[in-house]
Design a protein around this nucleic acid. Structure first.
Lengths: 351, 351
DNA sequence: CTGAAAGCGCTTACAG
DNA sequence: CTGAAAGCGCTTACAG
């Protein structure tokens, strides 16, 4: 333990009388030294409390054994979103399988750029559009593999997506088919999708386009709806409650609320419940994601099922292939979605 | 870009005509070189696409700028537990504030030991009892700061806990006060708390002790209850549903289910709902944690509120103090809890 | 203001 | 089977 300093490979070499090479082999390639040497070295290492420094090892080997996950927003808003939690679970289980750790990278000092420059990882998975070309540049010059989930496939990297436009279309079509005409649309926070890339290709934009298509197919105009585009939200329960209260302040009230996130929908429902508004009798609410809460909330949510876990897992598997040396180019991975009809959507009262 | 290889500080030095020292200063201590030198160096760096290698930098500086979080179980079971998600959110937001990343460390190859040996982090936060003395030894010889959440405070490290025994006592007392006599107790999975340390000090043990106290205060014996200790669960929704179905197979049915986790309680309720069993009329259910779902599930859960976010945040703050050089010894941090009465607990039918 | 040089703790051809 | 030595890409006293 030589004076409160961690012993190094050198100490073990001196103490055991073997070379540093031998010590290294004792830990990493035991077959290359004699059994006797190995036992002696390991014995000394144990006695001195020696553990190879992972930092030095990683540096020498040029790998970290860790995959990075770029949080699209600050930690509280990111981890407060169950959808992101599920994506994380998918990524994490693949990392575990490969013996890697998973490094969550918050927008350090508010600068995604700095975070990406400094990230000590072997590859990166990004969620949402926040990955602008400036960041892609850094990734490229760092020669670091990366894949994007819910990003714009055009950006020249492998990507995992659902057909957001089609999904949103089906969702809104179901709402219009039920007879709703006065609808509040709750979009996603721009902050998670803002910079870089073609903005009209962002997930919220594509979903709005899907909504528009549903309207126009029925000879309706989405812009006639008072509430459209007015409400924007972070995907957490408290934010959903806030939005719900704002909607409650509208006069007259809309008859349906269409959100882009289950947890936001659930937050809205909670706010409506406070005011004695019955869902779906007085107000219909639909979500997006189909996370587990959508099933057990009351009434159960009509929503779009998108397999968040699989999204994360597919992205991670692709990333590991790239870490292994494969070139995936801008491979597009598309995962199926489906509309799930439950009780939170009904026909409006005065129809 | 010299032939597909990342440029290093050496390339920039040669190309710009300055020394490696100067290049390093240009990035880290600009004030120590002339403006002219700095501009030239930065210009060359930009042109060649140079970004300092974080690995080399970390190695040289002896820090990673990352905090490790030891997952108590495999990723799916860990991240599928909303309580752990909340703890993570608390830890993460403190990391973000300090400009650190958060490394999730799964039990690699099933071996927590290996995971801890190899973790490239500046400090570690562990959740639950899985941190045995073998691991503490490694942490000590690696001279790595660590703090434990829901662990045994006795282990000689800083710890964050609630008074689990008292909390469990209050919870069970409320159930018994409502008149229940036939109770199914759903304990936590042993796997998350098994090895190392004094087993009777583990969180599930302390909660069982609290339950026992509540029984004995009413001249009842917890062991007379058929179901006691019989059901054990991972804290995820699907596991809760499984447990609920197993309970449904009992004959006669108990009148109340006491769990140690909201999401398990909610899973049980879902299984009961399948069978047409009404909660709380036919069956009472109580949870533990008071995560957000406990509020919006129907009926809302009677549960123990424990501030998971604050637990994570406090642990992280303590860890950063240790990383900063402070010695915290085995400082015990205790966070208040409280019983939250909602609709899922009622008086049993035939009483 | 600037640079030569040692050092961080490992790994790994290479030669014996 | 074993070891001397170079190398990974940075940082940082130290001397000028």
């Amino acid at each position: 333990m030589t004076e409160g300093k961690r012993p190094t490979i050198k100490d073990i070499a001196q103490e055991s009388g073997y070379s540093k090479t031998a010590v290294s082999f004792a830990f990493n390639e035991p077959s290359r030294i004699s059994v006797k040497a190995r036992n002696q070295i390991l014995g000394v290492a144990d006695r001195l409390g020696y553990i190879p420094d992972p930092m030095a090892r990683n540096f020498s080997l040029h790998k970290h054994m860790s995959v990075g996950f770029l949080l699209p927003q600050d930690v509280v808003h990111s981890l407060g979103n169950p959808y992101i939690g599920d994506v994380l679970e998918g990524i994490g289980s693949v990392c575990q399988k490969h013996g890697y750790t998973l490094t969550l990278i918050p927008p350090l000092e508010g600068s995604m750029i700095q975070a990406v420059r400094n990230a000590a990882v072997d590859g990166l998975i990004a969620l949402g559009m926040k990955v602008g070309m400036d960041i892609v540049d850094i990734l490229n010059t760092r020669k670091m593999p990366y894949v994007t989930i819910d990003g714009t496939p055009s950006a020249g990297m492998p990507s995992v997506n659902i057909r957001d436009m089609d999904a949103a279309y089906q969702l809104m079509d179901a709402v219009l088919a039920a007879g709703h005409k006065d609808i509040a649309i709750v979009s996603l926070s721009a902050s998670a999708f803002s910079d870089g890339g073609a903005k009209e290709d962002s997930v919220p934009s594509k979903r709005i386009q899907g909504f528009e298509k549903a309207f126009s197919e029925r000879w309706m105009d989405i812009n006639d709806s008072r509430h459209v585009h007015q409400f924007v939200s972070e995907c957490t329960f408290p934010d959903g409650v806030d939005i719900g209260r704002k909607i409650m302040a509208e006069d007259p009230l809309p008859t349906a609320v269409v959100t882009m996130s289950d947890i936001v929908a659930i937050g809205c429902m909670s706010a409506f419940h406070e005011k004695g508004i019955n869902v779906p009798k007085d107000m219909s609410v639909v979500g997006f994601d189909n996370d587990i809460a959508a099933k057990f909330v009351h009434p159960a949510l009509t929503t779009i099922d998108q397999p968040a876990l699989e999204k994360g897992a597919m992205a991670a598997e692709a990333l590991f292939r790239m870490i292994g040396g494969e070139h995936l180019g801008n491979m597009r991975m598309e995962i199926p979605f489906r509309l799930v009809k439950r009780e939170s959507l009904a026909t409006p009262r005065n129809t």
